[in-house]
Design a protein around this nucleic acid. Structure first.
Lengths: 218, 218
DNA sequence: GTTATAATTTAGACTAACCTAAAAAATATT
DNA sequence: AATATTTTTTAGGTTAGTCTAAATTATAAC
């Protein structure tokens, strides 16, 4: 149906669209996929011809419904296989990504139907990310406070509760803004403080911060 | 490590070497792999350079020890995945070949170690073919073709030679699968056809059937 | 509002794996 | 043994996906 490369582009673009509200640029795709921008331009033209996305030169891309469907299907397969690797083969959750990157391209509808059944139709993968359903629909979890997020889950910053300049300046300093991905590395039960990862930086935040930041789990 | 195409060539050549004593020719490979002889020549030169086989123009090829090792490893993966598909995902044994053709190329040593464990280190795949061990060693069984069995002898079905869905479906219809007991009630010298008993049913089978079914005499 | 910088696209080239058509070598036929 | 046939190889071309370097467009800085 689609080549490995096409599937990888669609999947990557899908993720990029979901983690920021601004358009998906050529360089962003190139960075994610670890390829050169010129290669991205080529592929994006091909995908546009196949009506999987819309593309305006210099203006970035946007997945069509069909493109989203294909991408979600690849992500569904990836996440189901991750569940299999962790639950059935006892892999650790940080070892499964690379293998799932390969398994996600295996072509067989029946295989995924049966794998899903075998695993008990899980809703989330071992990283806490939701598994799209058969129709490519991602269970959108409504926004939560960062303080409600469990250890090892990821969230995209979607808003703030407190809007004082002091708080926003604090967020700026920590390079947190709308669309920023935050990972909870650790949580202290006693005072609700957290260790989080933002980009390549890891740092401590207090409960006050955590209960004033809205995130969307991904 | 090796490309999909390289692995497929090695696997195919391995099978060809094992099913006839004469050398493996360019055309034989081309037929098996469903490609053109000229393409085979190209690939065979490449594999010879990589010391996976020896190749003399116009004289066919022969796998080196290293080539056999790689081929056996691919076959090991293929057959382990077939066991998984049948035993865990409840596929029928005639539905798994195509999917296993894809899964056999997934690269991860650890994955295969764990899959093997998860399946209880099986020795045979759902078609009765032996699964090479970690070192690429194939357990050889003294199986015979049903056509070699004499009148009034009994055999246990241990495998098939032909693996096309048509043949496997025929066997399903006749309720013959791995482990099924078969008794030869009669044998026609002239065309090699047979009357056999399977469970409580007695029926006629042609020579073509009988020479594609492996049994172990009991 | 120019100019400088950054982002993006175009042009041309490369590799793996395939193909067709023609040439060469091996095998079969008489 | 000479010729016909089959098998295999060579030569040259194609496609997908990548790359580098140069050109173009957009954005930022003054």
């Amino acid at each position: 149906m689609f080549t490995r490369a096409e599937e990888n582009y669609l999947k990557t673009i899908f993720h990029l669209e979901n983690q920021s509200t601004i358009g998906v640029t050529t360089n962003a795709i190139a960075d994610s996929i670890e390829t050169k921008p010129s290669s991205v331009t080529d592929m994006v033209k091909k995908l546009a011809e196949k009506k999987l996305l819309t593309y305006k030169p210099y203006k970035g891309v946007k997945l069509t419904l069909e493109g989203k469907k294909v991408a979600a299907d690849v992500i569904r397969k990836h996440r189901l296989w991750e569940v299999f690797l962790v639950e059935k083969l006892n892999f650790h959750w940080d070892e499964v990504h690379e293998i799932a990157e390969q398994l996600e391209h295996i072509q067989s509808e029946e295989l995924i139907i049966r794998l899903d059944q075998f695993l008990g139709s899980p809703d989330f993968d071992p990283h806490g990310d939701p598994i799209p359903d058969k129709n490519g629909v991602l269970k959108r979890t409504e926004k939560k406070l960062l303080s409600e997020i469990e250890k090892n889950q990821n969230g995209i910053c979607v808003g703030v509760k407190e809007t004082t300049p002091e708080f926003l300046q604090y967020l700026n300093k920590k390079k947190i803004s709308i669309g920023t991905k935050i990972k909870v590395l650790g949580k202290e039960f006693f005072d609700g403080s957290m260790i989080i990862q933002v980009g390549n930086d890891q740092f401590f935040i207090s409960h006050i911060i955590a209960e004033n930041l809205y995130v969307q789990t991904i």
